[in-house]
C-alpha cells in the first residue's frame, strides 16, 4: 500500500515538474525542474528494483549532465530580450503542439492498456536480485554479455568529448583573418 502511495505521489511530482520544464520561460527554472523530474524518476526506479540505475540517474543525469546545462546557460548569459526572441513566427504552433501532445498521450495510453505482455521469463526475479545485489548483476552483465557495446560506448564518449571541444573552441584561424 505504501508502494502505491509512493508511486502516485512520485508520478504526480514527475508530471508536474515535467510540465514545469516545458512551460517555464526562464531556462534556469526549466533546468531546476528537470533535475527534480530526474530525482523523482530515480525513486520510481527504486520501486522497480533497479537500484543501480536509480543511483546512476541521480549522479550522472541529475548531477553531471544537468550541471553542464546550467553551466551553458550561465556561459551564454542570455538576457530577457534574447530569451523572448522576436514575435512568434508560428502562432499556431503552440496550440497545435498541445493538441497533438494530448492525442499522443491518449494513443500511448490506449496502446499500453491494450498491450498484453508475455509472462516473466527471466531468471532475475526481485528476490534473486535482492539476494545477489543489483549492482553486482549489472556489473557482471556489462563485462560479460555486453562487453563489446560497453567498449563501443567508451569510444562514443571519447568521440563526443573531442567533437565538443572542436565545436566549441574559438575559431582562431578565422578570427585572425
Amino acid at each position: 500500500m505504501l508502494e502505491s502511495l509512493l508511486f502516485i505521489i512520485m508520478s504526480l511530482i514527475t508530471i508536474a515538474c515535467a510540465i514545469g520544464v516545458v512551460f517555464q520561460k526562464n531556462p534556469v527554472y526549466s533546468a531546476v525542474f528537470l533535475i527534480q523530474t530526474m530525482v523523482s524518476l530515480a525513486v520510481l526506479y527504486v520501486l522497480l528494483h533497479a537500484q543501480f540505475v536509480a543511483a546512476v540517474q541521480v549522479m550522472v543525469y541529475a548531477g553531471a549532465i544537468m550541471v553542464i546545462f546550467v553551466f551553458v546557460i550561465m556561459l551564454l548569459n542570455l538576457n530577457k530580450d534574447e530569451l523572448e526572441g522576436d514575435r512568434n513566427k508560428m502562432p499556431l504552433q503552440k496550440p497545435a503542439a498541445i493538441i497533438l501532445g494530448l492525442i499522443l498521450v491518449v494513443m500511448i495510453g490506449i496502446l499500453m492498456t491494450r498491450a498484453t505482455f508475455s509472462g516473466a521469463e527471466g531468471e532475475y526475479t526481485p528476490e534473486v536480485m535482492d539476494q545477489i545485489g543489483n549492482t553486482q548483476l549489472v556489473g557482471k552483465m556489462l563485462f560479460t554479455k555486453y562487453v563489446l557495446p560497453f567498449e563501443i560506448a567508451s569510444i562514443l564518449l571519447f568521440a563526443a568529448i573531442v567533437g565538443a571541444i572542436v565545436l566549441a573552441k574559438k575559431q582562431i584561424i578565422k578570427e585572425e583573418k
Partner: peptide, 26 residues
Amino acid sequence: TWYLVLSGILFSIGTVGVLINRNALV
C-alpha cells in the same frame, strides 16, 4: 501498466516541449 502510462505522459510532455519552445536549450 501505470508505469508505462506515466512514461507515455512524460514522453508526450517532452515532445510538446520540443515543439513549443523557441529556446534551443529548453
